[in-house]
Structures are given as C-alpha cells and as structure tokens.
Amino acid sequence: MRDDRLKWDAPASDPKVLAQDGLHVTRVRPTRLTLISGVQARRASALPLIGWPDQVTSEQFALCLRRDRILEVGGPDRLPGWDAEAGLAISEMTDGYAMFHLDGDRTLGLLKRGGVARPDQPSPSVVRLMFGMDVLLYCRGASGFGLCVPGPRAETLRSALRAHLSQHGAEI
C-alpha cells in the first residue's frame, strides 16, 4: 500500500485563495445554506431567486438549482425534514458547500478556462460543469462571481484555479 500524502498537496487553510493583478479568489463562509425541494420550491423563499446571469446584490438570496430545488443562502433557520404542510423537503447544507468569491477584470478570462459561462446565455439555474466538476456559478456585481462546489471538491477547485494561473496567468 502506497502512501500518497506527498502526491496530493495538503489542503490550504488561507481564505485568500489566490491573488494576482486584477484577479482575487477568496473563500467566504455564508451564515446558513438550506437546500429546499418541492413542487413550489422556487416560490418557497422570500429571498430573491437567482438564476444565470442574475446579479446577487445582498448577502441573502436563493440560488435556483433545479426545476424543483433552491439553495437559500443566508436565509432563515428552517426545521430540517419533510414539511408536509408546505410540501417542502428541507436539509441544512451550511457545511456542505465551499463558497468562493472571484473578483477582478480577468475573472471572465479565468472562467473561460473552465467551461462556457456567458452572461449573454441566460439559464434559469446556476448549476453547471466548470473545471470538470459540478459547480454553482452566479454573478455578483460587474466583474464578480460566486462559485460553489461541494466541500470535498474545494481543494480540487482551488488547485485547478491555481494551476491555470500559474501556467498561463499572464495571458488570461
């Protein structure tokens, strides 16, 4: 049995993931993430419902994941389980996603290394395949993006971004 601890970089703990001219990636920790599914899920939250490329303007919003599923970010505390009255399935996912903020003029250039995500191609949902993994990608302001991956993928995303910048950073 091999010991692969050297083969895989130890996970970084610094929330400032990357910083280069015109490009910043930071890890942020939302107060609460709640997964809500149901026939009426997209109408179940009082928070603004965010698809692509809707702009997130505050700390509280709901990302549209599917036809019948949203992810509340910074929403109210909800009792997990099946809410029979509202017809909603509710799970807390606060610790389930790693959330990154990407800011700067060159961010779109970096995202083009991960897949196609064009603001002029709208989509009701924010889920997509980027950098080879399932992510949630949404817009924050003019040149800012939010990028979420399941926690176990955080290190992969971080190292993917780092690899692109270290190899081709000057040309992105």
Binding site: R67, G115, Q121, S123, V127, L129
Partner: peptide
C-alpha cells in the same frame, strides 16, 4: 429547464 449545455453535463 436549464437550456443549452455542454454534452458532458
């Protein structure tokens, strides 16, 4: 629901 996407999705 989501519209046109890369086939790998």
């Amino acid at each position: 629901f989501c519209g046109d996407r890369d086939e790998r999705e």
